[in-house]
């Protein structure tokens, strides 16, 4: 809708939009500001200008062993995503390029597993983890996160693969490509952007998962979501330190997230909105 808008109207819209945006962003902004304050400043009342001290960040790392949950978060989110991709890429490929009458039903069924409330299987999963020694292990939680995100991964890949025109694969076949050539030289290069987006979104979802991580870990395998949740009251960890821990927990994913806005819409709506 390219059309000239009076610059007065544009100023008005701009001011309104920025006010809304800053209000929505404010809690995050204020947390970042507080993380750069000393503890005394942090509880001294509303103040948007911190003293830019990094003492809270240092304290979080030394006193609370921040790196362990951080490492766990990285391992769990990347590990579960890679596992899911290994299982989902062939499945999505098959459903996109060799669909049968039941493909749509299978996809809908996969979606429906996502509708099953996590809490409904809390009891058996908890007991299985207790009895098999998987409790508080990274491997157990990795598999868990892989399973809960697998439907989304299959769906996302499916919608991306579907956009690769079948005629191109047929052209490759006519050009003498074997199945291996077809996958290596044609399909993979065309599918890589879609796979990358899927990976990105799934890492974000796994990083932020906060039901199973809290239920199935104590200390060893606890990622940041479980670690942070243990500070439900700020005793021992004060405002500035809590803010620093929060900033550290969300910063990597916030930055990843900014790069994945478009894919986010697609991924979370199962391709229904693009």
């Amino acid at each position: 809708m390219a059309r000239a808008v009076s610059s007065r109207a544009k100023v008005g819209y701009t001011v309104a939009a920025w006010i809304v945006a800053l209000l929505i962003f404010f809690p995050i902004l204020y947390t970042i500001i507080t993380s750069l304050k000393s503890e005394q400043e942090a509880i001294a009342g509303f103040d948007l200008i911190p003293s830019f001290t990094l003492e809270s960040f240092r304290a979080v790392q030394t006193q609370n062993d921040y790196w362990k949950p951080f490492t766990n978060s990285v391992i769990l989110s990347l590990g579960s995503t890679l596992l899911a991709l290994i299982v989902a890429i062939p499945a999505a490929w098959a459903m996109a390029f060799s669909p049968t009458k039941r493909t749509k039903d299978i996809l809908m069924w996969m979606l429906s597993t996502k509708m099953m409330p996590a809490v409904a299987v809390l009891v058996p999963i908890y007991l299985i983890f207790l009895r098999t020694g998987l409790m508080d292990t990274r491997i157990g939680l990795t598999v868990m996160l892989m399973l809960i995100n697998l439907p989304i991964v299959v769906w996302m890949l499916y919608t991306y693969f579907r956009e690769i025109p079948g005629e191109i694969l047929e052209a490759a076949r006519m050009d003498g490509a074997t199945l291996r050539d077809e996958i290596v030289h044609v399909l993979t290069p065309m599918a890589v952007p879609g796979i990358a987006s899927t990976l990105l979104l799934n890492v974000i979802l796994a990083w932020n998962e906060a039901f199973w991580t809290i239920q199935l870990t104590t200390t060893n395998a606890a990622p940041l979501s479980a670690f942070i949740a243990s500070f439900s009251s700020p005793q021992g960890l004060f405002w500035a330190k809590l803010s620093a821990a929060s900033v550290l927990a969300i910063a990597p994913i916030l930055i990843l997230g900014w790069f994945s806005q478009k894919q986010l819409v697609r991924g979370l709506t199962f391709g229904a909105v693009k």
Partner: peptide, 26 residues
Amino acid sequence: LIDKPIWGQGIVRILIISPFFVMPPV
């Protein structure tokens, strides 16, 4: 509102989308 022509639409979008990436406990 943000579909209107505004200055800095990209940044406005980033600010508005941010809370979604904050993990629930945080």
